[in-house]
Design a protein around this nucleic acid. Sequence first.
DNA 1: TGATTTACGTAGAACGGTGCACGAAGCCGC
DNA 2: GCGGCTTCGTGCACCGTTCTACGTAAATCA
Lengths: 342, 342
Amino acid sequence: MADGGTKTGAGRVTIRTVAEDAGVSVAAVSKVMRNAYGVSEALRLKVEASIARLGYRPSVAARGMRGQTFTLGVLLVGIDNPILPLIYGGIEGVAEAAGYKIMVGVGAARMQTEARLIEQMLDNRMDGLILVASRIAGDVLERYARQIPIVVVGHHEPSARHFDTVNNDDRQGARIAVGALIDAGHRDIAMLALPHPEDHQANVSPQRERGYREAMAAAGLSSFARIVHMPQPEVPRHAEMTALLSGPDRPRAVFCWSDLDAIPLINVAHELGLRVPADVAVVGYDNSQVAAMPVVGLTSVDQDARGLGEAAARALLSRIGGRSEVSHVILHPRLVCRTSHR
Amino acid sequence: MADGGTKTGAGRVTIRTVAEDAGVSVAAVSKVMRNAYGVSEALRLKVEASIARLGYRPSVAARGMRGQTFTLGVLLVGIDNPILPLIYGGIEGVAEAAGYKIMVGVGAARMQTEARLIEQMLDNRMDGLILVASRIAGDVLERYARQIPIVVVGHHEPSARHFDTVNNDDRQGARIAVGALIDAGHRDIAMLALPHPEDHQANVSPQRERGYREAMAAAGLSSFARIVHMPQPEVPRHAEMTALLSGPDRPRAVFCWSDLDAIPLINVAHELGLRVPADVAVVGYDNSQVAAMPVVGLTSVDQDARGLGEAAARALLSRIGGRSEVSHVILHPRLVCRTSHR
DNA sequence: TGATTTACGTAGAACGGTGCACGAAGCCGC
DNA sequence: GCGGCTTCGTGCACCGTTCTACGTAAATCA
């Protein structure tokens, strides 16, 4: 009801329409919208009544030219990793409660695409940016961070000075996962990791590799430790996985850097006629929805994805609010036990 | 290289900076950017050189106030349905090739959230909108369509006059799926559908129900036909599925409206100790990635999600380009056979 | 009561582009 | 050598907000 007749050009209801309708100045309406200082109760009520009656909605474009857009940009590396919806949900919850909108940018994991997306967010005058599992190097981010508040999720940059980071403790998560396999009696435990990245310690996979090595060393199993690096994320990993599980030195247990690889690995085992966990035990990372399915039953490290999203949004809002000291948040992961590891 | 020093406020490089650098007027630069009529080769080269040298990027906000933003809004019902990345990929490919950016809005399947997102896209001055699997009623869409070009994917509105639709033939897809079950020798074939929607024929589930009934009737199996409507999408469907598969009148085969329900159903069967397909055969819809996993092996209808996205983007661009006659595209689905149906 | 502060409201200049109306050439034919 | 037509390029009025500076009325203090 009260359609407002918001047709482009013609009868579009702008801040001026509201001002006339309420019999006040344009600036007064603007003040009410931003609930700025210096507006009486009477004025506020009058203006709010007009806004409601006319169905006025401020133009983000016009806003962006001078002030804030009240919109946060969220960059997702891809849309297919099942952990992203959870992180996104956390971000959205906090942002919405604070009156902020979200604009999502979806980029393949290629660095060039990501940089393009950041520029695009800049062009669109976002108030701040959250990058989820970005591959962009720290110094590049520092440069962008001078132009816009940035929070990075799933990317370790503990020495960053101009942008914040939010992560789970990937080393600890890996230690817990490997510990569970050791407790279950396994000794010959391999790890499946991402291809070796250039920017070594920033990404999550290398962090989990460190935790893996530490746990193996602590149990005196360093001689069994071996890390298998998968090929590029694009190409199918089927052949490598088959090779790993069908060779003569097949490991008795595998810790995977992510469910994204653990679940295909279980499938390969199934194809080869290997029983999980009797012939090969598997633990993953991320506790994705598919992992929870009974036919999969994957034991996996839960990094509280929603909590990550919430922490990231809170950090970004406080930065937009003026904070300038850096903040690096670390959440603690926990293991969710199912049938695949013992 | 050539960082451009794009700091907010201070040295930001605007269209004016470029104009000065190239020694031409602001309007001339604007013309070059939009490659508008009336600009000589010499001028264009001069301006383009300056743009490249300064690293100039036009402000979307400022653009949106008068002209186009060259940005398309894409509304996804949620971020977790595995078919969405494919549709999105199709949209993106076509849009990018045409020089358009994409802004994604993610909304839970609640109608109110969706309407809010459309308004948000309007506020952001998108040039056009693609709604994927929206639940919004046709007449509401017609109203929005007067304000902005709209294309709807996965929502049948064959009589819509002011917005376009792109769909696969859901009736035909259902007939193919049921036909495969009949060919495999099944007679007692049930269908798992969404809860009864208010807006009956627009959503995909009712369309697939029609196809199911037609196929059963054509095979003289109408007496076996029964459609089980699941509860709301939010609540867990586990109890209903368990009831369906453990009752005395357990069906021998089930056609599911979507892999989203077919995969949980396979898991429930697994929990109950039922073998698939020996004890109960299953066919899904969407041919999602999880369906293709060997441990799942779900036979499913493939609706060429990428093709849907591409067709939608093409339709939207042609509407933005001025087309006013309505266009309703229908793609043909095909069955991907795996182990779950025979 | 007069001086000083405080609270409220307003006018008008930005912000960074677009698009219209117009003027200056250059080219033509006669 | 003078109208008429194109082809280019420019000046300027917008678009819908925010924000600074300022004026005025009410409240507080000496």
